[in-house]
């Protein structure tokens, strides 16, 4: 006999309480720092040094954020960050998606070696790429340009993008493409009319993933620039000689797009980070 839904055993109820209790505790652990840094970023500058501090937004103010945005270099760095991230998306997808498609669709000699090489190239520490590139970029006038930063970000994102897009294209059945070919498409048309629309949501998620990589990257961006900073580079280099409220505002500002994007690609979280960031 099955136990009826209405007669929950005490054991079951206790289990549920423990389950939700744990889930909520872990959620608080995750959310608390975000809430507090937001709180700090939206208080007055003086409130940073208040003691003890209120835990509720009782003195909500945009003073700190305004100060941060008006600090010299910040707005430019935000613009730089956005441009670098967009260029990184465009570059890594344009370069990487065809490669991902090739890995997904064709059997060819050297395929295993290439996949392995891509996996390995994900492991290299940023330092070992950024430092020699900084030296080279000095010689070819790419040093201290956002293009140089974007190039490095593309290189860092490419292995991920190829592996992610290969996964996406594998998910588009090959016979759809072949059906399109028998119905009058050439290869390119079949790709554009059938594969692209079906792969698009995944590709958008991959683009956002790339955005996050670039938006957050700090080591290379700092090493490769002097005046044309991206936002993380700007904040990092100002850490030691900036007031606390500047740092809070900067931290919060960097977090916001992340929150939005994670929300947008929540369906793909496991595919992007779980299966791919092996």
């Amino acid at each position: 006999m099955r136990i009826m839904q209405s007669s929950y055993s005490p054991r079951y109820i206790l289990g549920r309480i423990a389950l939700y209790g744990a889930a909520i505790l872990l959620a608080l652990w995750t959310l608390a720092p975000l809430y507090l840094v937001a709180l700090a970023a939206f208080s007055t500058r003086q409130a940073t040094f208040q003691w003890p501090k209120p835990l509720l937004p009782t003195d909500f103010s945009t003073d700190t954020m305004q100060f941060f945005m008006n600090t010299r270099g910040v707005l430019d760095s935000v613009g730089n960050s956005v441009i670098v991230a967009l260029v990184t998306i465009a570059g890594s997808l344009l370069l990487g998606a065809p490669g991902g498609y090739a890995l997904a669709r064709f059997r060819f000699r050297g395929k295993e070696a290439i996949s392995l090489g891509l996996l390995i190239s994900k492991m290299f520490p940023t330092a070992i790429l950024a430092i020699p590139l900084a030296v080279v970029f000095l010689q070819i006038d790419l040093y201290d340009t956002i293009w140089g930063v974007a190039l490095v970000h593309i290189a860092m994102a490419l292995p991920f993008v190829i592996i992610v897009t290969a996964g996406i294209f594998v998910g588009v059945p090959r016979d759809l493409e072949e059906a399109a070919q028998t119905l009058g498409c050439n290869r390119v048309q079949a790709f554009v009319r059938v594969v692209m629309p079906l792969a698009l949501p995944g590709l958008v998620a991959a683009a956002i993933f790339t955005f996050v990589i670039s938006w957050n990257e700090v080591f290379a961006a700092t090493i490769l620039t002097l005046r044309n900073r991206t936002l993380p580079a700007q904040v990092l280099t100002a850490l030691n000689d900036s007031p606390l409220y500047y740092r809070y505002a900067g931290g919060f500002f960097m977090i916001v797009p992340a929150l939005i994007f994670i929300f947008l690609i929540r369906k793909y979280l496991l595919n992007l980070w779980g299966n791919i960031s092996r």
């Binding site: 059945p173 016979d175 759809l176 059906a179 070919q181 028998t182 498409c185 050439n186 059938v194 079906l198």
Partner: peptide, 20 residues
């Protein structure tokens, strides 16, 4: 010749109906 130049029509084992 490429498939599209052969003037054939094909029904696939898996249907291959375009889901979008």
């Amino acid at each position: 010749l490429a498939p599209r130049d052969r003037k054939i029509a094909m029904v696939f084992q898996s249907y291959a109906v375009f889901p979008h």
